[in-house]
Design a protein around this nucleic acid. Structure first.
Lengths: 110, 110
DNA sequence: TATTATACCTAGTAATACTAGGTATGTCAA
DNA sequence: TTGACATACCTAGTATTACTAGGTATAATA
């Protein structure tokens, strides 16, 4: 990551769900999309992403379908209805969390 | 925490430094201050805070002095010059990180 | 033909915060 | 007075998370 990796904790799943909501895609593609949408701030590693996708599918938050394209197998992931609900909840939590951090930082600048 | 604990990763040190910059305080007090300044969002556990303070002191980012008040021993922590520099750097990283998350979330809402 | 890009995967490691305890004193109500 | 709660410190072990560093395989390109 361009930013300290510690900040990623907890938000990776949120980011993955958000990208997949905008457009279903396969893992390799998702990494590039995430990088583009974040102005190169997020450079998620494959070793980070694939386990997340498997976990999300296990929990029924995303589903996948295999595609054969030019001799390559791709697993295209989409967000399920359940996943959309979780995404909305996590977005709320993110807002609450980031607002709280900003508030504490504001105190520290007085 | 009021928010999913995962989000805390990486930002706890930033929050602790920010609180101490505003006002030097001892551990037990810091937890209450952090809770107040965040509108009860951050309810940091002692088992989380004390190791962080020890690590920060080890790295020279804070320093402590013992105080005896009403039969109790308090260790009052202050941010060092080195700590202030690290705090500023971490604030920048936080801004970059949170902006990037918000940008990705905005894409997911289009 | 060798390198790079594509596309998937996992085992082991490091970092972080939490749980769940422990010690000890002061205060306040039953 | 005694038992509960708040104050104030601490640590060992655990869980979660993301990363490192590999592995497999095909297609394109230099």
């Amino acid at each position: 990551m361009a930013v300290d990796k510690g900040y990623m904790s907890g938000s990776s799943q949120l980011l993955v769900l958000s990208v997949l909501k905008e457009k279903p895609c396969y893992g390799y593609e998702l990494i590039k999309t995430l990088k583009n949408q974040s102005n190169n701030v997020f450079d998620m590693q494959e070793g980070t992403l694939y386990p997340i996708l498997h976990k999300l599918e296990n929990e029924g938050l995303v589903c996948s379908s295999k595609q054969e394209v030019a001799g390559r197998t791709r697993k295209v992931y989409s967000v399920t209805d359940k996943g959309l609900k979780v995404l909305e909840k996590e977005k709320e939590e993110w807002k609450e969390f980031s607002s709280a951090v900003n508030q504490v930082l504001a105190f520290g600048s007085m």
